[in-house]
Design a protein around this nucleic acid. Structure first.
Lengths: 106, 106
DNA sequence: TCCTTGAATAGACGGATGTCTATGCAGCCG
DNA sequence: CGGCTGCATAGACATCCGTCTATTCAAGGA
């Protein structure tokens, strides 16, 4: 990303992922799910730590899922969510600036 | 970030950076500046490749600058922008999922 | 079967955001 | 000094987005 200009399509797609991460509640949800024992969490575990309503949590989970950052499965009465590490990893390596000449004034 | 839950403050701050990256024009600007010869670019080099007006580019550059992702300096008639690699690097390492147990159904 | 609980959907509403046109400011040059 | 060029600011406007309440759907238990 810092070596050659992004194409219009790549930028559009990438920005979609960043949009999903551009909300404090969603970031905390993602982090909370990832750091849960076993790497997955039931929705009922996720509504407590936040000051927003259950439908709002449900909405944020949907946004994260549609961005390909998490997935879920129903097990009886409960729905469990887990993080898909690939998307996060790809993003991380894209942002890597290792070896790129540091710019500055002058 | 995937090892322990983000605090409310950390999430708020982080989401600010992601917000700045959550726009295709800003992503392309960042990428374009970084990949410019010498690692810096004049604004006049940045308005051409986009379909939006010059004030809109100026607005996006301000957002990126206020997020700590780029900086600028006036040199005579022109203003030059360059990428601050630290912010991007910190973000990249934050998203790293290496060594974290992969979650999944069951 | 009915009721209860866990979770998602629908729709409304206010605030944030991306874009534009018009204007202002800074620096160069004749 | 006057005008021109590069860039930023101001303000308007439409759309998007996060949140809520109300409702619906799914699954289990008495």
């Amino acid at each position: 990303m810092v070596r050659e200009p992004l194409t219009e399509d790549a930028a559009k797609s990438l920005s979609g992922t960043f949009k999903a991460l551009a909300d404090p509640v969603r970031l905390r949800l993602l982090s909370l799910i990832a750091s849960f024992e076993g790497g997955e969490a039931c929705v009922c575990d996720l509504t407590g730590p936040f000051d927003v309503s259950q439908p709002t949590i449900s909405h944020h989970l949907r946004v994260l899922r549609e961005a390909g950052l998490i997935d879920c499965e129903r097990r009886g009465t409960w729905v469990y969510y887990w993080v898909l590490p690939d998307a996060l990893g790809r993003l991380g390596s894209l942002l890597a600036t290792d070896g790129v000449a540091v710019a500055g004034p002058r």
